[in-house]
């Protein structure tokens, strides 16, 4: 349910951005996005703060986060490396067109 709702909202936003006819909305898009983001992060922080046990386990989470981030990055780079040669042709052609 949530997945569809998110996608729908993204698409409605994209359509409005594409049509570019509600200038006020588009002009302040970046600003509102920032406020929405800070609001969300604040609420998320409150949710973390309410959980006492969690606050005491930050040290452990930092280490876990570092390991997960490093593995994600290394495997992403390896993944792109697998297809890089195949894409190189397309890229050269595109550069000629630009």
């Amino acid at each position: 349910m949530n997945i569809l709702l998110y996608f729908l909202i993204l698409m409605v936003g994209a359509y409005i951005g594409y049509k570019d006819n509600i200038k006020v909305l588009i002009k302040h898009a970046g600003e509102v996005q920032n406020y929405a983001l800070f609001f969300l992060l604040l609420i998320m922080g409150i949710k973390i703060g309410l959980d006492k046990e969690l606050v005491y386990s930050f040290g452990k989470i930092g280490f876990q986060g570092l390991i997960l981030a490093l593995f994600s990055i290394v495997f992403s780079v390896l993944g792109v490396k697998l297809v890089a040669k195949r894409l190189l042709k397309e890229k050269e052609q595109m550069e000629n067109d630009l």
Partner: peptide, 28 residues
């Protein structure tokens, strides 16, 4: 008020996604 935290997250997220959509749509 802890039980309303989830609802606030959902509302904020919808607003955020809407404006991210506008950003994507702007790149015509």
């Amino acid at each position: 008020l802890a039980e309303y935290v989830g609802l606030l997250i959902d509302l904020g997220l919808c607003v955020l996604l809407f404006f991210v959509g506008i950003d994507i749509g702007k790149q015509k």
